[in-house]
């Protein structure tokens, strides 16, 4: 069966910087793929290129086996893909509920709904249920999110993404600002989302977390995928080696064994 989403040979330059250099990527339904690499390796750029946030100079994208071009993040979300961006895409002046439903407001029934009136009660109830499921520390649903802590904001962005995605969730360093308990909740949530058959792409600099939740790990260096390895049986040392290039020959071997 064809992968759920596959990218072949994506390239993208910013001036002299080749942020993506013939990068490939693939993920199956119900799989957690971790994307790792040093700062500036091109992870965020790859996610943006996969989700309609960034046009590429060359390369192809296949969704459920068919070639696609994704022109906008909106198109990506209509295809069932949601992103938690590294630079959080929340509106700081709006509250968590308003943010969660931004662009997807539930209309009131009848004439008022067609005039653009919103069902605030229903949106709030749905949002609260979503936050309860994540076990988050977001307690106020009426305060603007700009006034909340970085971790609380991150939780809001995560809840928003997993509530809407039905094919793939991209999480770009979702636990970077989170406390111990919240991080564990997010990792548990990732597994729960995966068990529902939704694929998860996780970018993280924390190797233990990566090994804990990922099924497969793709390593990026200098804008390209340098290794793919199963999480099982891989050690932190091997991951770090692949990221820095110290273990190139070994990773290639592992890759051959894996395929």
């Amino acid at each position: 069966m064809a992968p759920l989403l596959e990218a072949r040979g994506l390239s993208r330059s910013f001036g002299h910087v080749r942020a993506l250099d013939d990068a490939s990527f693939d993920i199956e339904a119900g799989e957690v793929v971790a994307l790792i690499g040093d700062n500036g390796a091109g992870k965020s750029t790859l996610v943006k290129a996969l989700t309609g946030n960034l046009p590429v100079d060359s390369g192809e994208l296949y969704f459920e086996g068919a070639p696609v071009t994704i022109h906008s993040p909106h198109q990506a979300s209509e295809m069932g893909m949601e992103v938690v961006y590294q630079d959080l895409a929340l509106a700081p002046h709006l509250n968590p509920v308003q943010n969660m439903f931004l662009g997807r407001e539930i209309p009131r029934k009848g004439l008022l709904g067609s005039l653009g009136f919103m069902d605030e009660k229903k949106m709030r109830a749905t949002a609260e249920a979503g936050f309860a499921e994540l076990g988050g520390t977001v307690r106020s649903f009426t305060a603007p999110v700009g006034a909340m802590s970085g971790g609380q904001r991150q939780q809001i962005a995560i809840v928003r993404a997993i509530s809407w995605a039905d094919k793939i969730v991209f999480l770009d360093e979702p636990t970077a600002a989170l406390g111990v308990v919240q991080t564990r909740n997010v990792l548990d949530t990732i597994k729960r989302v995966r068990d529902k058959g939704i694929a998860v792409v996780l970018i993280s600099h924390s190797m233990p977390h990566v090994l804990q939740v990922a099924d497969r790990i793709q390593v990026m260096r200098l804008g390209t995928r340098v290794a793919t390895m199963p999480a099982e049986g891989t050690t932190v040392e091997q991951l770090v080696g692949a990221m820095t290039g110290a273990l190139d020959s070994q990773t290639v071997k592992r890759k051959e064994n894996a395929s």
Binding site: S72, P73, A89, L90, A91, P92, Q98, E105, F117
Partner: peptide, 24 residues
């Protein structure tokens, strides 16, 4: 204060890129 039009007005002023990303 009560309609989607108003909500999007705040969203555009608060985070234009974020508003675009959610399809506004």
């Amino acid at each position: 204060h009560k309609t989607k039009f108003g909500r999007y007005t705040y969203a555009v002023g608060s985070n234009e890129l974020g508003a675009r990303r959610v399809g506004i």
